[in-house]
């Protein structure tokens, strides 16, 4: 049976759930990847589908189209800013401004494609940029506040992980913010706003399976942790084979549910 770890979020508890992660994590072979791709291929898709933990948590229901806003931009900007100030957290505001300037510079030079963050930032006026700055500072500071202590080696994840399933017209996305490296493997931390819901476990397990698939050696992280600073909670799943399998099943179920929703909408 796969179980969910739950603790109140503070530095001590987070360090405990990181240090207490099981040393042996599951790993997947090529046959597992092939088998998963086969199963996804069996779920017809009229267009390319993209699945992630959010969709698993919402049972494949279609979401509103994505639009940039201070709230949706804060994670990228905040994480990049935190990467800039790693070791010197005194000036998060300056790091956020530097990150904004870089994004705007990219847009000015024509490197930002339409729809990208840089492209959107270049189109907004300065009060909105001010609010974006405030949101990104909030994100980076909150993340810094819930990071593990100095004894642990952590890095801000360069990006989320994406896995393309061959021939299944499916891309899986795994959300991650912090990667903690230990002698026995990695531990992934992802941060979400609001509070965890009833389907948080399946969401974390689906992120776990995507992270495992994205690893070149197929090695699962020792533990996948979800942090909810607004609620002051940390939840996690271990990188066991049971959890990886359960995560894969949840993603498949979501693909089936998504297909049903698409058929209903088309009818």
């Amino acid at each position: 049976m796969s179980s969910l770890i739950q603790r109140r979020l503070n530095v001590r508890n987070l360090a405990e759930v990181i240090e207490g992660a099981p040393r042996d994590a599951a790993w997947i072979e090529e046959e597992h990847r092939t088998s998963l791709a086969d199963r996804f291929r069996a779920v017809p898709a009229t267009e390319r589908r993209r699945l992630d933990a959010w969709m698993v948590e919402h049972a494949g229901r279609p979401s509103t189209p994505f639009a940039w806003s201070p709230a949706t931009a804060r994670r990228i900007l905040g994480n990049n800013a935190l990467r800039r100030v790693q070791g010197d957290p005194e000036d998060i505001l300056r790091a956020v401004r530097d990150e904004l300037a870089d994004q705007l510079l990219r847009a000015t030079r024509g490197y930002a494609r339409p729809g990208s963050l840089g492209h959107w930032l270049a189109s907004v006026n300065h009060p909105i940029l001010g609010l974006i700055t405030a949101e990104a500072v909030n994100w980076a500071t909150q993340l810094l506040e819930c990071l593990p202590g100095d004894d642990l080696e952590w890095t801000v994840a360069a990006s989320d992980v994406y896995v393309d399933l061959a021939g299944a017209r499916t891309t899986l996305r795994g959300r991650r913010d912090i990667v903690v490296s230990t002698d026995f493997g990695r531990i992934i931390v992802r941060v979400r706003s609001g509070q965890p819901g009833k389907s948080t476990g399946p969401g974390l397990r689906s992120d776990l399976v995507v992270e495992t698939l994205a690893d070149p050696h197929g090695r699962a992280p020792r533990r996948y942790l979800g942090v909810w600073p607004d609620a002051g909670l940390v939840l996690g799943v271990d990188g066991t084979m049971e959890n990886v399998r359960a995560g894969a099943r949840d993603l498949l179920r979501t693909a089936v549910a998504q297909r049903r929703h698409a058929l209903v909408l088309a009818a």
């Binding site: 806003s69 201070p70 709230a71 505001l93 907004v124 006026n125 300065h126 009060p127 909105i128 940029l129 001010g130 609010l131 700055t133 405030a134 500072v137």
Partner: peptide, 23 residues
């Protein structure tokens, strides 16, 4: 929020409404 983020406020009403609309 804008003041704490050390953003220059040109016109408080217009700037705040613009930021609110963007958010």
């Amino acid at each position: 929020r804008l003041l704490v983020a050390q953003v220059h406020v040109e016109d408080p009403f217009d700037d705040a409404v613009t930021a609110w609309r963007g958010d």
